[in-house]
Design a protein around this nucleic acid. Structure first.
Lengths: 347, 347
DNA sequence: CGTTAGCAATCAAAAGGTGTGACTGCTAAC
DNA sequence: GTTAGCAGTCACACCTTTTGATTGCTAACG
């Protein structure tokens, strides 16, 4: 799999095969390439080159009398070398911008729209995974006594995301008790990550014995918070998966079982590597879906990673377009959020 | 489609056809019925009866030399008349009880488990829709000033479900301002439904002009709250859909496009009718999925409807089992929640 | 030596033909 | 009303043939 030296012409021919296959999904013949890309050389010459490319593992012949289709190796090379800037049409850019050009309420709403717009413009299934919140740092925990048996717990993190829950205590408590508990809890939790807090140590437990019931409830809330955040996965355009004929029953089943467990999906979309774009072609030990390509992009906000957006489609997906769309959506989001219009109408 | 008088024997034969078809998914012949259900009468007689049932629209013959398959009409009759109590095996009941016999944190967690257990035991795709919260009555809105530009808004409803959000104000405010605003807001909102509040009238707007920014933010939160609650849909076992051979490409696409838009799905699962079980067979003007049956059950808690749970499978689904499972899960949930162990380990 | 034309070889996919078996519908007798 | 018996039907499986696209090879060409 080292970088073999491919002659200029071989590269051009290989690119031609992939380009053609992306749109036609049928094996590409030497004649087709000649007529559409290389009218100056004969089909026989192209045949020789194709034969060599097959030898090198870039092309596959389904059967002797068929044209060639690209191998995974070819797609990987294609993504690495041949994906050029795909200028989106004015219509497409307008469509993307328009999608956000409307009142929106909160993060969830924005994310849903983002998923929808990506799926609509690319015509593939889109997935968005919000960053695992376990790494978020707790800023403050507020306890507010509603009455003597119920307390409202509000969790505030450094990213401003909060969660709350009303808990019911078996023993009656008063305001002072709550204040004391609050001080103690903040002393322990403030500045820690949700993950740190999830597995409390014995020492803390003994310190908190006075507020045992309250303390345990808070731990439970944090756990549930961490759990629920782990799975903030949004999808759109699932039904588009079946618009591609190579997605047969088996592949669709595979796709659905990945989609079914959000954790698996999140792992695939956000695989921990720190690069802008990631392309996974086919299925390997580390997951993926057979006969499918998954293109993911890291989404940033104010220099911080906020999540990953991805697209699931056939191996022969329109990589340039997908990448351009992911980039354009990212840009648009940036501008809108930076506009500070959070929660207001954009005008 | 009126209730035609079917002789006892016709009914028995029709039931036999449906029962057989549910397990075999192949057209049922007269001989099969004779050997498995009616050894006392001849296949010729059964043929005559089958012929009559076909005439009446209960059965369909894919072609002259094939057996018969049930029509939608047959399924509807079957569900109405022949679905008997299907005693779940001890293993199944234990499995269901076990699923909840563990620490769980909050409503979302319970719902996810419920979806999973229903899908696992029935082997169909499960869907749970939590009741549209728009009908929930607002009990109180609490404003808590965090600092002079940020206020925490907490919404408390009669079902104890709350939501909160930190809002940022452009103009600095003090505690007294917040207190006044809080009083005013409660005067207006308390006792109303979220839906009522979503479209405020002019009069209120003029009353609130002093607190305009705050007021508008709260309306926005309520709207977003209503929106997000409308879509509390949970699914499990999507990939099981393809385990049924009659679910071809077209049907799967249909299924996925319903699943794709949670609103559509929610509408199908919770169609507003006030009956315990609802069975939708095939697709009609009011939605549904072609070649599929959707069985839904109303889930109650303390006499109040909390949502609907449903199962999506082939038309020939095991209706008795599905209904029994839905009932059993409902029971188990009831017991666990009534145990008051909300947020604690069950022992 | 790379390139090319020409041509036989290959093979999937489509089209056509045949047999088989599982049913039914009908008829006539019970 | 029920039944046995039998002819009729038709999907399905299997095979063969045809078609057409495409290749690989070879020999000639510049």
């Amino acid at each position: 799999m080292s970088i073999e030296k491919l002659s200029e012409r071989k590269q051009k021919i290989l690119k031609a095969v992939v380009d053609e296959y992306i749109t036609s999904a049928t094996p590409i013949s030497s004649g087709e390439i000649k007529s559409k890309h290389f009218d100056e050389i004969s089909s026989a010459t192209i045949r020789n080159e194709l034969s060599a490319l097959e030898e090198m593992g870039y092309l596959i012949q389904p059967h002797t009398s068929a044209g060639r289709i690209p191998s995974k190796k070819a797609y990987n090379l294609y993504v690495e070398r041949f994906v050029e800037k795909h200028p989106l049409s004015k219509k497409e850019v307008a469509f993307i911008e328009n999608a956000f050009n409307d009142r929106f309420n909160e993060i969830e709403d924005i994310v849903k729209r983002t998923a929808k717009v990506i799926s609509d413009v690319t015509n593939y299934t889109s997935v968005i995974v919000l960053k695992n919140i376990n790494k978020v740092v707790l800023k403050e925990i507020k306890l507010i006594d509603l009455d003597e048996h119920t307390v409202l717990v509000v969790i505030i993190t450094d990213s401003g995301i909060i969660r709350d829950k009303v808990i019911t205590l078996h023993n009656a408590v008063n305001s002072q008790y709550i204040k004391d508990a609050n001080a103690m809890i903040n002393k322990i939790f403030a500045g820690k990550t949700v993950n740190d807090v999830k597995s409390p140590d014995k020492l803390i437990e003994s310190e908190m014995r006075e507020f045992r019931e309250l303390y345990e409830s808070i731990i439970a809330i944090l756990e549930s918070y961490a759990d629920s955040c782990e799975e903030s996965v949004f999808m759109d355009g699932q039904s588009k998966f079946l618009e591609y004929p190579e997605h047969d029953r088996e592949t669709t089943k595979d796709f659905l079982s990945v989609v079914d467990t959000k954790e698996k999906l999140a792992e695939i979309i956000d695989d921990g590597t720190d690069i802008e774009f990631n392309v996974k072609i086919g299925k390997d030990e580390k997951g993926g879906i057979d006969k499918c390509a998954i293109v993911t992009a890291k989404y940033m906000l104010h220099g911080k990673e906020i999540g990953h957006a991805g697209v699931i489609g056939p191996e022969r997906m329109d990589y340039s377009k997908v990448m351009s769309v992911l980039k354009c959506v990212s840009h648009t989001l940036d501008e809108i959020i930076d506009g500070g219009n959070n929660g207001k109408r954009i005008e």
